[in-house]
Structure formats: C-alpha cells, structure tokens
C-alpha cells in the first residue's frame, strides 16, 4: 500500500510546503505586484501542470493510434479532462490577479485587457480542448470515437504551441514573457525569476502535478471499472 502510494504522500507534503512557504517565506519586493508575486506558486502552477497533463494525454493518444487499445483512449481523455480543468482554474485565478495588477494599479482600460494576446491565446487553447470533448461526445461508435479524437488530440496539443507560447511572446503583452519585458519564459528564465521564488515554485509544480495525476488516475480507474466488459482483458 505505502510502497505503491508514496508519491501521494509526497504530493501532500509538497503542497503543505507550498502553502506555508508560499505565504510566509521572503519574496522579492516589486512595484505593482507587491505580495501578489506569491500567486506564482498557485496561478502559474495551474498552467504548468495543465501543459504536463496535456503532454501525457497526447502520448496516450499516440499510443492508442499505434495499437488501438481502448485502455489508452481512456487514459488520454481523462488526462485531457483534468488538464482542461486546471486550465480553467488558471484562467479564473488569472482574471483575479489581472484585475488588481493590470486594471486597478496600472489603470489599463478594458479594451487593452480584451486585446491582451496571452488571454486570447489561452482562451483559444482551452476552447480547442473544449471542442475535443464535444467531438468525443458526438460519436456513438466507441472505436471511431477513440480513433478520431486521438487524432484531434494531437492537433489540439500542437495548437497549444502557437496559441500560448509563441504568439503572446511575439506581440506586445502585459503578461510576463512579452517582448519589452525581456524575460523570455517568465517561469523558467534564470535571470528573470528570483532564486527565493524558485525555492517554492519548483516544489509547488511537482506537488500540484502529483495531485493532478492522482485525480486523473481516480477518474481512469472509475472509467476502467465501468468499461470492464468492453476492454476484453
């Protein structure tokens, strides 16, 4: 029991460290951001873990297309589902953060916020994944559903690259990582992110990832129990 589930305990411990360290440890003193830089451990982690889970999902989709084992399709859809959920959480937390740092404290107009390329890109990426679930729901034939949605999942993952990583960094953006803020990737650039932040940020990512994987495995196990008769094992 403990031998197989040690990573769940690791997840709990890392997240306790994230909350305690994230609220209490020293952070760089920055204008406009002030204490909200601590959101790095929560808001940014959501997106980070979303990308990891989408990556896992696309790997299972490719595995499905190689052997047409329905088990891999179940893995792929559930990882994508938990990933999308985290993406929605990331978007929601981002709106709260932006409200105080962009709208109120930098007096940006609603127009400039709505034109914000990072927000548009993230919305496109999430909507593409939304379409993935719509597509799945529209099939009655299991094999067809698995096959077409696996191909679509690869497309959806490929669309993540331009929509949330490339385009917002080519055009001007308020979000960190835009040209002008010379930061490249705001989360991974060693010149940009303070070492005090990294002390909590990396454990936070591992902790949130493990929790998300745990929830995904629960969903997968329920689905496998439901479809037991179809999996012919």
């Amino acid at each position: 029991m403990v031998k197989k589930n040690w990573w769940k305990i690791v997840s709990l411990l890392l997240l306790i460290y994230t909350v305690v360290g994230g609220f209490l440890m020293d952070v760089p003193k920055l204008f406009i951001l002030n204490e909200t830089i601590r959101n790095l451990y929560f808001h940014v982690s959501m997106w980070f873990v979303m990308m990891i889970l989408f990556g896992v999902s696309v790997v299972y989709s490719i595995k499905y297309l190689r052997g047409f084992n329905l088990r891999n399709d179940i893995y792929a859809v559930n990882y994508a589902a938990v990933g999308s959920f985290l993406g929605i959480l990331g978007y929601t937390t981002g709106t709260i953060w932006a409200n105080y740092t962009w709208v109120t404290d930098q007096s940006q107009t609603l127009g400039s916020i709505l034109k914000e390329p990072k927000l548009i890109g993230a919305a496109i990426a999430l909507l593409i994944y939304g379409a993935y679930f719509v597509l799945r729901g529209s099939f009655t034939d299991m094999d067809k559903r698995a096959r077409i949605s696996a191909v679509y999942n690869i497309f959806a993952f490929a669309m993540l690259f331009p929509s949330i990583w490339i385009i917002p960094r080519l055009v001007g953006s308020l979000h960190p990582g835009a040209p002008g803020s010379d930061s490249g990737n705001p989360a991974l650039n060693f010149k940009d992110i303070d070492s005090r932040l990294r002390m909590v940020f990396y454990p936070a990512i591992i902790g949130w990832t493990l929790l998300a994987v745990w929830i995904a495995t629960l969903k997968i196990r329920i689905q496998l129990l439901k479809d037991k008769s179809l999996l012919n094992e």
């Binding site: 909350v19 609220f23 929790l211 745990w214």
Partner: peptide
C-alpha cells in the same frame, strides 16, 4: 490565512484519499 488554506488543502487530500 495559512491555517485556512492548510485546512482546505488537507481536507481535499482526505477527500481524494477516501475516494481512492
């Protein structure tokens, strides 16, 4: 705030553990 967040976090973990 730390205590509140920890309570929520640990509560969530207990819930996920029970479902597991």
């Amino acid at each position: 705030v730390v205590a509140v967040c920890l309570t929520i976090l640990i509560g969530l973990f207990i819930y996920v553990f029970l479902v597991d």
